[in-house]
Write a protein that binds this DNA or RNA. Structure first.
Lengths: 244, 244
DNA sequence: GCAATAGTGTCTATAAGACACTATCTT
DNA sequence: AAGATAGTGTCTTATAGACACTATTGC
């Protein structure tokens, strides 16, 4: 007997149905600021409000796929890493009907440009530490959860490299940490930490030529690295004081 | 204008609907073993298989509420702490229809007894490090995710106390860590760590009388503590080597 | 006394924080 | 030479690991 057999008299209507959506917090660094991708809503409810890019789940796709699709359809951005945050289920969170939304966190490539797509009249990068914002639905909550998750994960994973191009300098990586944590780090200690943690960064043997898009004075002989195989950082990089 | 207004011609049927459920990994310590609560399924599919306690979401409740209800309805257990794990959305994970399931982790009080309830013919505690098990649907995956989350969270939160009664000894707490991590800890270092972390445990001033339900030889003059206000442990308690 | 649990003391190894220092490149 | 980024050296402090030790209680 097949354990996955369904009784013949089974009535799928007897369980209450809901709509399932994903909403994605896409973080990127733009001009040195940590930003989240927001889209302006074309239709009611919350018409004209900023919101996180999201979509309803298609019948044959899983949520990870929907999250990537939502971001690329609405903004043209192709994200690097996606992971679930949590699922938001307050019965009245959407005035149209019951919608449970699976929150996602994603990292976009640094200094990428976005363009408005399907059902979005406009797209923008919202600088998280500069401009206060009111977002549609409970997206403000989701965004805060996403920021916090990103900050936490930089402590004990190697995800910071997902913000960067394939080759980067240790200084670039330090800037990612400082931007996401909104807090300066000691250069010497950062170097020691990164180079003593095995498998996190691998030297490419090359050096940075001239600083491309920065009008930088000074040297450009920094060594280039690429991300290593390690996904976790142990011991973690400790964030400021740890006064939780 | 009300930003939550819905267009008059809005048709809620135009989005694909799914059923939403919760499935809960309830962890407890029984006779010194870390166990997960499982219920035997009464109906097809997977009739007669062990599964995690779960339920479909009612229209007016949120998922946290549904998780607590699922556990108490099916097993009589009232859990201490609940938190979301992640949401499982593979389109074919349930043969009846599309069901997205929100996985939960919960901690049950130590040495509690359970009894079969609604739609469950039997209830059992599955010792995680002793008996291999095949569970219905993707519940094996959810259980592994729950175990791993619990192990991780003991490192940097004070959740271990949720397994214990209101008053406990440091030795009791050490046993919780050793059971969940399935690994012995050094007593002296554990004492030092717990007593130097502020707000984690507070002495009650009382001493343990005689060991109640343990046929223990030896002393019983251990000091009693209760959980403090701190929710996070910083620095964390480091688990074995950290060789991830 | 013996066995078992409770709790302490102490030495060492590891890693973080602070900060001064040298090197190299561009203009 | 000046200014900026790249990278190193080193002292101090915090904390973890290992393990030997004493104290108390029940039998």
């Amino acid at each position: 007997m097949d354990e996955r057999a369904v009784p013949e008299n089974y009535d799928p209507e007897k369980y209450p149905r809901v709509a399932a959506s994903v909403d994605v917090v896409v973080l990127t660094i733009r001009d040195g600021d940590l930003c989240a991708l927001v889209v302006k809503r074309e239709n009611a409810p919350y018409q004209g409000w900023w919101s996180l890019p999201g979509t309803f789940l298609y019948p044959t796709e899983d949520a990870d796929w929907a999250a990537r699709r939502a971001v690329s359809d609405k903004t043209g951005i192709v994200v690097r890493h996606v992971e679930q945050l949590r699922t938001y289920t307050a019965p009245d969170r959407d005035p149209r009907m019951r919608v449970v939304s699976i929150g996602y966190l994603a990292f976009g490539p640094i200094d990428e440009t976005a363009e408005a797509g399907y059902h979005a009249t406009d797209v923008d990068w919202l600088p998280l530490f500069k401009r206060p914002a009111e977002l549609a639905f409970d997206h403000q909550t989701i965004m805060v959860d996403g920021l916090r998750r990103a900050q936490d994960k930089l402590e004990y994973t190697t995800l910071a490299t997902s913000f960067l191009p394939e080759q980067f300098t240790i200084g670039d990586l330090k800037e990612v940490y400082e931007t996401v944590w909104n807090h300066p780090l000691d250069k010497a200690n950062f170097y020691r930490k990164l180079r003593s943690s095995k498998g996190v960064i691998e030297p490419t043997g090359e050096k940075l030529g001239r600083r491309s898009n920065k009008n930088a004075l000074g040297s450009s002989n920094a060594l280039l690295y690429r991300a290593g195989d390690a996904k976790m950082l142990y011991p973690p990089i400790r964030r400021e004081g740890g006064a939780w």
